[in-house]
């Protein structure tokens, strides 16, 4: 009789724990929620205090003035491009800064990497035509 009761209570316990797991956010979701809560609090406090885990803040440093690299400056964008499309980066790297700026701004607006790659080759061939040597 005791054994049956024990089995029953174990079954209930495991059922309850599985239910609670079902309602919990997994670790990555929790990091995401922490990040958006930190972002939201800035409306009230006026300052952004990054969460401990920075995967959703797009930053590698805790320096709040520089939090969120997110391709905001040209250097970050160049690093991103180098990683995302190493082939295109070879051509991109040879472009004058004004073209690089243009491509960076275009990416911020459209988010279309395929179009950026096409434009890199377009600008490269334009420059080659202008300076054949």
């Amino acid at each position: 009789m005791r054994q049956i009761k024990l089995i029953q209570s174990l079954f209930l316990l495991s059922l309850l724990s599985s239910l609670s797991i079902g309602n919990q956010l997994h670790a990555m979701q929790s990091e995401y929620v922490d990040a958006i809560k930190a972002d939201y609090h800035e409306f009230n406090s006026g300052t952004f205090e990054p969460p401990p885990e920075l995967t959703w803040v797009g930053a590698v440093s805790t320096d709040t003035s520089n939090a969120g690299l997110a391709y905001e400056n040209l250097q970050d964008f160049s690093l991103f491009l180098k990683e995302a499309s190493p082939g295109s980066f070879i051509f991109y790297n040879k472009l004058p800064d004004q073209y690089k700026d243009q491509l960076h701004q275009q990416y911020l607006k459209t988010g279309n990497l395929d179009e950026i790659k096409k434009d890199i080759f377009k600008y490269s061939s334009e420059i080659k035509k202008q300076n054949p040597n």
């Binding site: 995401y32 990040a35 958006i36 930190a38 972002d39 800035e42 409306f43 952004f48 990054p50 959703w56 803040v57 797009g58 939090a67 969120g68 997110a70």
Partner: peptide, 8 residues
């Protein structure tokens, strides 16, 4: 303000 986080 500025948006501070990546989108989910």
């Amino acid at each position: 303000k500025k948006l501070r986080t990546c989108l989910g």
